[in-house]
Amino acid sequence: MMLAAHDLGWSARGAPILRGVSLEVPEGETLGLIGPNGSGKSTLMRLLCGVLKPEAGEVRLAGEPLARMSRRRAAQWLAMVEQQAETADRITVRDAVELGRTPWLSPLRPWSAEDDAIVAEALAVVEMSGLAARDWATLSGGERQRAHIARALAQRPRILLLDEPTNHLDIHHQLSILQLVATLPVTTVVALHDLNQAMSCDRLGVLQHGRLVALGKPQEVLSPALLRDVFGVRASFLTDPADGARIIRFHAVS
């Protein structure tokens, strides 16, 4: 298993946020995490990447406990795109993306042409090459999100963790980012808000009140019963005549 969580638990000021979450992600899979607001998605993401230390259970990377890896080695494995990461510093887009090389560099392993190439490639992947010299403060929300993804890609991780990456994007970039994530040759865990977008993941995990209540193929997981119990909506399923994909339409439970 590329990434495995075993019986993870975490609480804030005595209130449990996450309880008994176990999941395994095989190499190359894209796992989607869904759940209503406050269900613990972000906390789970932060535990998976090691920003938070679990109170119970453990995370393993390719069988090795994350807690026992150095931060540097963990960052060579794992990259994370947070929901909101801002800065007041006067940096350019390229500066931000270059930060992704941090876990690979040291005072004795300085910046090289190889790093330049990786950064250029990451910028190209998110279609930001033309904006590399732009001042961070002048970027739109979507542009910042793409730059963050480029930074994560420049990290050359085996596992990519994305916390609601399409949040600030327009529909074109939402789709292109998701498509990009799906084609990346890395294991991906992505927290998503849009259930229709979640349909394109290999598997879905559903969080409710800090527990993983379902885990499996999107078509199996997103049943009308689960959508009613977890999200409090009535759903009807349509089929897109263009490509035969299933689309969910939501109705308020009356």
Partner: peptide, 11 residues
């Protein structure tokens, strides 16, 4: 640059 969480994630 992007805060302590980001620094942690960068190793």
């Amino acid at each position: 640059t992007f805060g302590t969480d980001s620094a942690t994630a960068l190793g």
